[in-house]
């Protein structure tokens, strides 16, 4: 009896070929994107999306053409933070046109497709029972379509805001083996750094993905009256972690409640509150991101 390997194909469906063609389509689309950057952590609630939004705005203010893909399919927030929530999704023959922020940042997010604030992402199925068997695959396919079917145009940077979970980067790298680099976000708490270390191991040692650097968010609270900085999470040591993993330390971003206010209003904090310590820190991180790629050229 012939075995699996003796049979020349799968009977005409060529499922493997179809998947390969999906990825070729993605590769073709991203030919006009110079640098792809994943913003990741592994830990939730450390400010990845807020930093992504402001890093994108800063890079745009510095003269770059920038796109942002919200890879958080189930909890999209980038559209609101960048001020494009409610933008109309427009289809062209060659893809879907991204929403464009006042600073010119092109955005694609599941949020643009959802009916209202209360509507979760739910996929049509005969039954939602045991949906764990297929939901993850559905989300990866949606991410692939967002990458390959958005008319990004010519971009200097495409930032990809990854949801929490140390498995998110390998999923992205499966789709995007030529990922340009990762910016890893943590807060200075021991718990956060416990998880982020796993993400760094995944990025650097297992996937061999270039790590642009490590960012410490919510470093300290700066008193608006006296300017005195107080540590918010004194238990972690991010710079030491960067040394341990031999990755660049990109900087510390102090906690500023106006970051949250600007995000809620869809405004770019770095533009609205330029000159504040947090804004200056984000600008330095953007400069270091540019330098990372300029050094490689």
């Amino acid at each position: 009896m012939k075995t699996y390997n003796d049979l020349p194909n799968d009977g005409g469906s060529d499922i493997a070929g179809q998947v390969t063609r999906q990825l070729s389509r993605l590769e073709e689309r991203l030919k006009s994107v110079r640098h792809t950057v994943a913003i990741m952590s592994g830990k939730g609630g450390v400010g990845k999306s807020s930093i992504t939004a402001n890093l994108a705005s800063t890079l745009a203010m510095r003269g770059n053409s920038v796109g942002v893909l919200d890879a958080d399919i189930n909890g999209p927030s980038i559209a609101k933070m960048i001020g494009v929530r409610g933008a109309k999704v427009d289809y062209g023959a060659n893809g879907v046109k991204p929403a464009v922020s006042p600073l010119g940042v092109r955005v694609m997010s599941m949020d643009l497709f959802l009916k209202d604030d209360e509507t979760p992402v739910l996929w049509e199925a005969q039954t939602q029972k045991d949906a764990f068997t297929w939901r993850g695959t559905m989300e990866i396919s949606a991410l692939r379509e967002f990458l390959s079917d958005t008319e990004w145009g010519v971009l200097d940077y495409l930032l990809i805001d990854l949801p929490p979970g140390t498995d998110r980067l390998p999923n992205l790298v499966d789709l995007l083996p030529s990922l340009g680099g990762t910016v890893v976000i943590t807060i200075p708490s021991g718990i956060s750094q416990l998880v982020v270390k796993k993400s760094l191991t995944m990025a650097k040692k297992l996937l061999n993905t270039p790590v642009i650097g490590l960012v410490e968010n919510m470093t300290a609270y700066v008193c608006a009256d006296c300017g005195r900085a107080e540590d918010m999470f004194p238990s972690g040591n991010t710079e030491e972690m960067a040394r341990q993993f031999e990755v660049p330390f990109l900087g510390k971003i102090p906690f500023d409640p106006r970051l949250s206010m600007a995000a809620d209003n869809g405004n770019a904090f770095v533009e609205e509150y330029a000159g504040t310590p947090a804004s200056r820190s984000i600008t330095k991180i953007a400069q270091k991101t540019e330098s990372f790629f300029n050094r490689k050229i």
Partner: peptide, 20 residues
């Protein structure tokens, strides 16, 4: 474009999943 999302996203904003 976006065939999978357009085919199977259950509850979507009006007009976002339709085109020629």
């Amino acid at each position: 474009p976006m065939q999978m999302v357009r085919s199977f996203l259950s509850d979507h904003k009006e007009g976002t999943l339709s085109s020629s």
